[in-house]
Amino acid sequence: MAKKVIMAVSGLIMVGYLLAHMYGNLKAFSGMQAFDEYSHHLRELGEPILPPSGALWIIRVVLLVAVVAHIWAAVLLARRSWTSAGVNRYETRRNRRGIQRTYASFTLRSGGLVIALFVVYHLAHLTWHWIEPGGSSPSPYGRLVAGFSVWWVVALYVIALLAVGFHLRHGVASALYTLGAGTTATARQVIVVLSIVTALVITVGFLLVPFSVLLGVIQ
């Protein structure tokens, strides 16, 4: 049971991070200077109480712990589920998708894997600069525009964000239920709406920038 709580809490931490991250991305619409300033300011966040890059490191550590915990719990829970229910437990080919379950719930584990792979690629591209599709640039804004000008970068981004959207559509609600919310039918409806809105906001919010770059709105 503790694993499920870890799953829920770490998931919600990441949702919070994604919302902040998305807000930052949208700064791209304010132009290169604003975006680069924001990007730089992240390193000064919390100064002078915290040392330079202190807040960023705190965020990074919390996030890293959340990611590791989320994956660790997910693997253990998935393994338990495979033992408990078995894989391909029924012979019949009919109704394999269940009675009412959402596509989102069906893709939770596979979608999570897609997201994990994407995050590695994403860090390699924009944090660690191991790969630099579209050419390199000293400015974060420049790297962003250069990257998203390449069609397959955007395509990867779209796939990943759809996965994120579905993941959140089920994950946000599930996390809240696991933490004991939704003890009435009405509360559950509210939570479902909330998770759909969260998923939409994050997916659309993140996709605005790359498509704007690809379509030339942002240059």
Binding site: S81, R101, S105, T178
Partner: peptide, 14 residues
């Protein structure tokens, strides 16, 4: 040996 709940709701549906 029962599995963990992932809040899918197939149980209630059936």
């Amino acid at each position: 040996g029962f599995g963990g709940c992932t809040n899918i709701g197939e149980c209630t549906a059936v």
